[in-house]
Design a protein around this nucleic acid. Sequence first.
DNA 1: CTGAAAGCGCTTACAG
DNA 2: CTGAAAGCGCTTACAG
Lengths: 328, 328
Amino acid sequence: MNIHEIAKQANVSIATVSRVLNNKPNISPKTYKKVMDVLRETGYSPNAIARGLKHNSMNMIGIVVDDIRNLYRAHVIYHLEDLLSRQGYTTIVFNACTKGETLFSLLSQHQFDSLIFVGSSLSTQDVSHFIASSCSQKPVLMFNGYVGLPNVISVICDEARGMQMMADHIYRTGKRRFLYVNYGQNLASQRKLSGFRGKLSELNLEFSDSHVFEAPSDDFEGGCKAGQAIIDSGIPFDAVLCSLDLPAMGVIQVLRQYGYSIPADVSVSGFDNLIYGKLTPPFLTSVDGKIQELADIAVEKLVAALAGEEVSHEPYSISPSLYLGGTT
Amino acid sequence: MNIHEIAKQANVSIATVSRVLNNKPNISPKTYKKVMDVLRETGYSPNAIARGLKHNSMNMIGIVVDDIRNLYRAHVIYHLEDLLSRQGYTTIVFNACTKGETLFSLLSQHQFDSLIFVGSSLSTQDVSHFIASSCSQKPVLMFNGYVGLPNVISVICDEARGMQMMADHIYRTGKRRFLYVNYGQNLASQRKLSGFRGKLSELNLEFSDSHVFEAPSDDFEGGCKAGQAIIDSGIPFDAVLCSLDLPAMGVIQVLRQYGYSIPADVSVSGFDNLIYGKLTPPFLTSVDGKIQELADIAVEKLVAALAGEEVSHEPYSISPSLYLGGTT
DNA sequence: CTGAAAGCGCTTACAG
DNA sequence: CTGAAAGCGCTTACAG
């Protein structure tokens, strides 16, 4: 069923059918009705590919994410898809972790209107090169990431500030000996750690590299190992700030095994405020990155750019908030 | 940059460029090299939309899911995307929960090669009607769902069997007074409950409708409320089987508050074996639906169907396995 | 207000 | 082995 058949049945030209289909002006009511009736009868829906060829766009936006099984990212993708679909865009998610070398070739094969990279783990040299060489003509969005190119919009959560707020909050509860559990080396983790360091020095608290513990993985298990390392280090402490929720759960687990009471003996905090921290009380105190709000802003800026508006390429940053659970 | 420019630069016809692009036979090595050189120089990549118009397919598969923020579904989507992209298909995820009335019109606008519905919450009359009326010519896959139409492939986890295995396991640990926490009325929850009932009657254990408690939501909170209802009912019990992991966590939480020791006084089990149950010991005993295995089979069948092979429309079912944590 | 025609960027018989 | 031409299903100036 194509536009020619509709035209034949309605006794008009395909141009007229097309006009009805696209709500163009200058159609006589009689003709409009005649075509509409056939459209309804046949349940015809126009071929999006042909339409896309004409417009050189299928209103599709590619979203690249490391691995959607991560709950934070699943939330981001969910909101981006929701907001963009309301604007008439279709989103296509690529899990970078399964693509390897083929990722960039996949991305260039499609005629995407725009690309979104979710998570600072994707603010890499490779991605930057790719955008510069194959994607410099269309708007690109880094969600919680940054790449210094003129066509790239960045929206980020001010993680440094989040960590400062958290350290400040825990300080006010009376704790003074802070440890830090980090995971990874991407931009987000660097921002978190530097915010934390800054606040501690502002508070005149002792802090050195030996107070930073690295979780070997960004999950519960990784947190357990970091917790064990903390115990083994023999360093005295009464607060452990973690750069992610899941490792924080592991840390709590190990500290409890060693007889520490949370938060009486030790305060523990996470980052992202995911449901993971709310499955058993006391709920995990965490930094909330306001995913939905960030997604709102991101989509607004991207849609403006897609409409041809000039947009600032200064990274736009929002301040997170604190979720106060029972672990601090 | 289009095929005409490449042809001009290489001094051949567009037909020849197209042949090189598609690795067609009957090209002289000399011509091949000439074209290849230009292709490489320019970094040209063919317009997928134009190609799609010719083939009337862009090798795209729509995936419909209620809400990708659910971890079980995120895992399913992840594996489907991975497997299908290896077969050259691009997947497009629609979160049905945000689409409302527009879902079906969105699905028909695109020229998808196939549609996948993930989760038994989508095995509805509406979906069935839609497939019958607008999608009867292409293969459709119900992932852990079922619709009785000739072009629909179904792969399902045998949840009834999973619940039987779980009841049997708990029975062997000596428990005799079973309660059940249900959520929702979809096919999966019905299969779980009926499997559970069947096993109990086989074991000659007392069981009635008053032993089934409904979680008002499929999350931790819903489980807490079901747990409270169990306490309030005054019914004696030493095992609570839950139809999902998250509510099981809530049940455990409330039972602990009332002084029950898990699993000494009460065994509690979940379903799906997600990470939620592994954030604090004892880990939640749960039924593992073998998502990855199911996805493998699903994609294999779908790809066969897309290649035109006749496939059986009998639902294909795999047996889950038990993950034995510390709550039973 | 309506239609004939060109064209979007490819692929693929067909002819040579 | 290669090219000219038709055609995929639309949209959109252009002419009337």
